[in-house]
Write a protein that binds this DNA or RNA. Structure first.
Length: 642
DNA sequence: GTAGGGTTAG
């Protein structure tokens, strides 16, 4: 074995004055292995003085180094040496475990089993048995052989070998989800569930199927036994399952009293930033960014963390910051590109998104399904009909990607909003898989824009079969009837909703001011400044009415939120975004007012905000459920296409 | 000295 010249030179001085006993020689091998300098470790073992022969302490390290370098013949040599010196089949637990793990990692599971079979079960100490079985189980887990893991575990118990936290930590992630509660119960019975590592493992595995059980395990842990990994696991569990508010709540607790002695790391922040991005929680996210700059100086080298930050900025209205971060990254992944592409898409800059995508491809990055969703939705938001169609068909022909339901949803949205409703419906019938609620919902949304009752009814029929409890679709259909003057239809839909006990999701908007979040619901009077806010909205309504008199039309949407039975009343709607914007106007001078909203902006509010941006000479950036609208000088960045 | 837990984009 030749030493790697680039690293062996650095190794020499450290050991130059070392004694020549076999122990210190072995210690040198072990330490090189631990440092990941595997070639040097093996070179030392091989080229060192063969007499006296290497101490037993060097052998497990040598096995690890051979494994890391994928050298099965080296492993075999060491194993032979182990037999020759009587360390095997069972007297040196460390060598045994290292060999079992090595054979399993290298995919030689039969050899691993043989080694286990040779062990004299009766005369081997239980702790040695335990590590031996654990090693083999973990090897099988690494090769995604869950059945083998459990077969060995049964054998382990039959042999009377005790299992421990490591056993459970290896089995739990390998187990089919239905078996996890049984392992959990076993952990409880044996007291192993109290081990932090076992609990952490249960949290992360439960998290794959919702946050509920993960949270329960976390909550049941004694506060003092929660370590950084516990917090990261529970925070990620909520972030991954879309529970952004709970994620931030947990983060707050971690930073406060409950997390004493635990400092967030990059993993924590990845989950937190993702939730900030979803919520539009700008001040929390900026706090995270400051924390990174102050406490994690090397964060730019952390791809995942940078990607999360790009996504955060892009989705929270700071495209320039997202772009700058992207430019400064030493290394980028497809995730970095996708976050930026989707960000430009959300802001209506479809052309930029398409250019970025082209650059990405020209740099040799092959698009994946997620990148295509970002690109197609960017085309959709910008009305780039031809590009959207081109890239959709390129998925299969150029990139060997099979379109998923999400891609079809984007395309139905793109075609439908472009007014090509028939084409959109044809696309649905050509799909190789059954359409889901989102696909039909996209068609329904397009029918709302183009006031097409017949096709809307067809889409509605499908969508409520697939998602009978999603109130948003009923509201959409009702709005189509409202817009086309079919009030009997509106009544019918309302009756359906009542019968089914469905309530439309309340609209809410929020704005951050001086580090605090000000949340507004439709027709909400709870804000301390409510009186002034309403006075301003009413005054602006009046001004807007005068300015747009006769030209505003009845741009639908008044049934979207709030008390829409007043739809026939005066043209005053206290939708949440109007309240939030008014609050911003009252409390700031000339900066851009940023509002985050949970539902789509309705046509009335859209007209209102455009006009007010001109009257008051202010810029408003509103993120609604699907994209950004930037209102300035009487126009919106969506060019009224949304 | 051996076996080993948490991570992003739509």
């Amino acid at each position: 074995m030749a030493a790697d010249p680039s690293t062996s030179t650095t190794a020499a001085p450290a050991f130059a004055s070392d004694a020549n006993s076999t122990e210190s020689w072995s210690a040198r091998v072990r330490s090189l292995t631990r440092l990941g300098r595997h070639r040097e470790a093996l070179a030392l073992l091989r080229d060192g003085d063969p007499y006296p022969p290497p101490h037993a302490l060097a052998l497990p390290a040598a096995v690890i180094s051979c494994t890391a370098l994928s050298l099965p013949s080296g492993v075999a040599q060491i194993q032979a040496l182990g037999y020759k010196r009587g360390l095997l089949p069972s007297s040196d637990a460390y060598l045994l475990s290292a060999l079992l793990s090595s054979h399993s990692r290298l995919g030689h599971l039969r050899r691993a089993h043989q080694l286990l079979d040779e062990m004299p079960l009766a005369s081997t100490p239980p702790t040695t048995l335990r590590t031996a079985f654990n090693s083999l189980i973990s090897g099988c887990a690494m090769h995604a052989l869950p059945a083998a893991c459990f077969a060995i575990f049964r054998r382990m118990r039959a042999a009377g070998a005790p299992f421990d936290a490591v056993t459970l930590m290896t089995l739990v992630p390998a187990a089919p989800h239905t078996a996890v509660p049984q392992l959990h119960a076993l952990a409880g019975k044996t007291g192993l569930a109290a081990e932090t590592t076992v609990a952490n493992c249960l949290i992360s595995v439960y998290a794959r199927r919702g946050a509920g059980l993960a949270r329960q395990v976390f909550d049941e842990m004694p506060v003092a036994s929660r370590d950084l990994v516990s917090w990261n696991a529970v925070i990620s569990a909520h972030a991954q399952n879309g529970l952004a508010v709970d994620t931030l709540d947990l983060y707050g607790r971690m930073r406060g009293h409950d997390g004493v002695g635990v400092e967030p790391d990059a993993v924590t922040l990845v989950g937190v930033l993702s939730s900030c991005a979803h919520l539009g929680a700008r001040s929390v996210g900026r706090g995270v960014e400051r924390y990174m700059q102050e406490r994690l100086p090397g964060f730019r080298a952390n791809l995942q963390l940078c990607n999360s930050l790009i996504n955060f900025h892009a989705r929270c209205g700071s495209l320039p910051q997202a772009q700058q971060l992207f430019n400064e990254m030493p290394r980028r992944s497809i995730v970095s590109w996708t976050a930026l592409i989707a960000g430009y898409g959300m802001h209506g800059h479809g052309d930029v998104a398409v250019n970025l995508f082209q650059t990405m491809v020209s740099e040799g990055i092959r698009p994946d399904n997620v990148a295509m969703v970002g690109l197609l939705s960017a085309c959709s938001h910008a009305g780039l009909y031809d590009e959207g169609r081109k890239y959709f068909s390129a998925m299969e022909s150029a990139y060997n990607l099979r379109p998923t339901l999400e891609h079809y949803t984007c395309m139905v949205d793109l075609l439908g909003r472009a007014g090509r409703l028939e084409e959109a419906r044809e696309l649905i019938s050509s799909m190789p898989m059954p359409a889901d609620g989102a696909v039909w919902g996209a068609l329904l949304g397009a029918c709302k824009i183009h006031k097409n009752v017949e096709m809307g009814e067809e889409a509605f029929e499908h969508v409520i079969k697939l998602e009978p409890t999603n109130a948003g679709y009923y509201v959409l259909m009702a709005n189509i009837y409202t817009d086309t003057g079919q009030l009997d239809g509106v009544v019918r839909i309302r009756a359906m909703m009542r019968e089914r006990g469905l309530k439309k999701e309340p609209g809410c908007s929020y704005i951050e001011h001086k580090g605090r979040v000000h949340l507004f619901m439709a027709d909400d009077h709870s804000h301390p400044q409510a009186k002034r806010i309403y006075e301003l909205v009413i005054k602006l309504e009046q001004m807007v009415k005068e300015k747009t008199d006769g030209t505003a039309g009845t741009e639908g949407g008044r049934a979207v939120e709030g008390h829409s039975q007043k739809a026939s009343g005066p043209l005053i709607g206290f939708h949440s975004e109007k309240l939030a914007v008014a609050f911003g106007m009252l409390n700031t001078d000339d900066s851009e007012i940023v509002v985050i909203k949970n539902l789509r902006v309705c046509g009335d509010c859209h007209t209102f905000l455009k006009t007010v941006s001109a009257i008051a000479n202010r810029a408003f950036l509103v993120r609604d459920a699907s994209r950004f609208h930037r209102f300035e000088g009487g126009a919106c960045s969506c060019k009224d296409y949304w």
